[in-house]
């Protein structure tokens, strides 16, 4: 697009095309104005209002006043640090699990599927087409205490082991951290699979053959060629999975119990039931700040800063 001026004239034009006049300089701003305004007024302004509210003190009756009350942040940390911690532990576990599950799927579609490729890709997105809440509710049926899944894992004593770690309790899966993590993994799996597929699909299979010719085992070939080349996919998949998972509270509500409540549950309760806006806003801002810090750290460490 930048090359417009440098493209040689196609020839045959008697008069040169209209020169970009002065008004053209403003054209992009006019074109961007509606969308930009929408984002400024309904995204940036709300975030600023949220930060402002988080520093106010007062109550619904006497009204709120802006007082730089950073104590709100301290209060929510004291009250909700378990939820906060759980959000990050659950989202982190779900992200790792999603990489482990999505990688073979993406690999299979990219290298082994052949003519099935486009059908499989549609099938990967297909779960998206059913409502998020309905899919999550379906997991309550699958993981129910009397269902085949729970009975099977109970009979081979896997649940005894996970009970011992603390992932499950009372030999059941529903209403335990494991159920919430499984639900989160499931719900954001396509966000991991698609970027992984995109980065795998671009790779030249000749590279692996070359590695094999140079006596690399298939294991070495994978870790020295396929995996490093797929890292951009891993990074964007991780961000696309972790961020929504850390803010989610639907899985914690449907698949967990009070013991598994996450930051989202607390924000929802504070805003919509308790109506303590300043503390709710402080918790919301804390969640966003923590995610931003983690994401920046992660992106810096993995060395890809040109994601935006």
């Amino acid at each position: 697009m930048t090359a417009i001026a440098h493209v040689p004239p196609t020839g045959g034009t008697a008069t040169p095309p209209p020169e970009p006049g002065r008004s053209n300089k403003l054209t992009p701003y006019f074109l961007l104005l509606p969308a930009g305004l929408a984002l400024l007024v309904f995204f940036v302004l709300p975030i600023l209002t949220l930060i402002n509210t988080s520093l106010q003190s007062g109550g619904l009756e006497e009204g709120y006043t802006f007082t730089w009350s950073f104590s709100n942040y301290w209060d929510v940390w004291v009250d909700y640090w378990p939820q906060f911690l759980r959000s990050f532990v659950y989202a982190g576990s779900a992200t790792v699990l999603a990489i482990l599950i999505a990688y073979p799927i993406a690999y299979m579609i990219a290298f082994k599927a052949g003519q099935w490729r486009s059908i499989l890709l549609v099938l990967i997105i297909a779960p998206f087409f059913t409502s998020f809440l309905i899919r999550t509710l379906a997991w309550t049926t699958i993981l129910s205490d009397t269902g085949p899944v729970t009975s099977f894992f109970r009979s081979i004593h896997v649940l005894a082991l996970t009970d011992w770690i603390g992932l499950t309790s009372d030999s059941r899966i529903l209403a335990t951290p494991l159920a919430v993590i499984l639900g989160l993994t499931y719900n954001f799996l396509p966000f991991m699979t698609l970027p992984l597929y995109a980065s795998l699909e671009k790779q030249d299979p000749g590279l692996l053959q070359a590695a094999g010719d140079l006596y690399a085992s298939s294991w070495q070939g994978f870790w020295k060629i396929t995996w490093p080349l797929s890292l951009p996919g891993v990074i964007s998949g991780t961000l696309l999975t972790f961020i929504p998972a850390a803010g989610d509270y639907v899985n914690a509500t449907f698949l967990g119990s009070m013991r598994e409540s996450m930051t989202g549950n607390a924000i929802d309760a504070l805003f919509l039931r308790i109506r303590d806006y300043s503390h709710a806003a402080a918790l919301s801002v804390s969640l966003m700040a923590a995610i931003v810090v983690l994401v920046i750290y992660y992106v810096r460490r993995s060395g890809t800063e040109d994601l935006v």
């Binding site: 995204f43 989610d248 709710a280």
Partner: peptide, 8 residues
């Protein structure tokens, strides 16, 4: 995260 967008 959607909670932050929604609550703000």
């Amino acid at each position: 995260p959607e909670v932050v967008v929604g609550s703000s």
